[in-house]
């Protein structure tokens, strides 16, 4: 008993962060913070497969997590309704001073703020699978976000060797929007039998120097994530240019099935 408690108890007086949301993003954050001097609480319905580190602390229930967190990362992209639910619970449980850094690629900070009790501490982030491996994150603010909160968010990323870029609060922000449109276009081409998957990927890497082929990139990101951004862009703008390829919808179901049954 004593042992178990000792294991779970955070080393004081260290900082504590909380992360919740889509599993690929949770994992990326765990990887990122696994060697950092913070306790990272993971709030999720099942224990994600991440490296065993004493500073990564899993909990299925929010009640078991301290209230005085420095920052909460809410990283749900695939279900805006789930995101709102998570944010509501977080606001009920955690101190109102805690910074909330919430993924804003499939819903804006503005939309999320409409449901919030304390929207002044909510910051948007371009949390998207595979992009989190890189050196820069995009941040955005809602209409009520305070400058202090934005400054604090910038410092948190600076501490962990990431540059930040402040962009306008729009669906997809910059990189996820461009990337998802590229992947959607590649999937349209695949669906129309313009070329094979391998040839599409080879062509884009050799012909235009892309770091990854769009189809393999989509696979690594998860087609459900790509679909979530395309659907949100389509709904937000009403423009047909953002309609998801029917094959993308099928591939997204594949991603969901794979993550559910093959892990």
């Amino acid at each position: 008993m004593g042992m178990a408690q000792k294991k779970r108890k955070p080393k004081t007086p260290e900082k504590s962060f909380l992360v919740c949301g889509d599993e690929p993003l949770l994992k990326a954050f765990c990887e990122h913070y696994s060697r950092a001097d913070v306790n990272l609480y993971i709030w999720h319905n099942k224990k994600p497969e991440v490296s065993k580190r004493s500073n990564l602390i899993y909990s299925r229930s929010l009640a078991r997590i301290p209230k005085d967190l420095i920052v909460i990362f809410e990283l749900t992209n695939t279900s805006p309704a789930q995101k709102i639910k998570n944010l509501e619970q977080i606001e009920k449980h955690c101190a109102k001073e805690s910074l909330i850094i919430s993924s804003s690629v499939s819903s804006t900070v503005t939309a999320q703020s409409a449901h919030a009790r304390y929207p002044q501490r909510i910051i948007g982030i371009s949390a998207f699978p595979t992009l989190l491996e890189n050196d820069l994150v995009e941040l955005s603010r809602g209409p009520l976000t305070q400058n202090d909160a934005l400054k604090a968010a910038g410092e948190i990323f600076f501490d962990y060797h990431k540059e930040v870029s402040l962009v306008d609060d729009r669906i997809g922000m910059v990189m996820p929007r461009i990337l998802c449109c590229l992947i959607n276009e590649a999937i349209f081409a695949l669906q129309e039998e313009v070329a094979s998957t391998d040839d599409i990927d080879t062509a884009m890497k050799l012909g235009t120097n892309y770091p990854q082929g769009p189809v393999e990139w989509g696979e690594r990101i998860g087609f459900d994530q790509v679909l979530a951004v395309m659907e949100a862009l389509h709904a937000d703008t009403g423009e047909d240019r953002y309609r998801p390829a029917p094959l993308l919808r099928k591939l997204a179901v594949g991603t969901i099935l794979t993550s559910r049954f093959l892990v």
């Binding site: 910059v174 929007r177 461009i178 449109c181 590229l182 959607n184 276009e185 590649a186 081409a189 129309e192 039998e193 313009v194 070329a195 094979s196 040839d199 599409i200 080879t202 062509a203 884009m204 050799l206 012909g207 235009t208 769009p214």
Partner: peptide, 28 residues
């Protein structure tokens, strides 16, 4: 060279799939 095979459709592979790289950037 490394050949890839494309059907005869506008822009073939590269000039078509690369469109959003510029198009979305311009919109942003």
């Amino acid at each position: 060279k490394t050949p890839v095979l494309a059907s005869d459709t506008p822009g073939f592979i590269v000039n078509r799939i690369a469109r959003p790289f510029y198009g979305e950037a311009l919109r942003l």
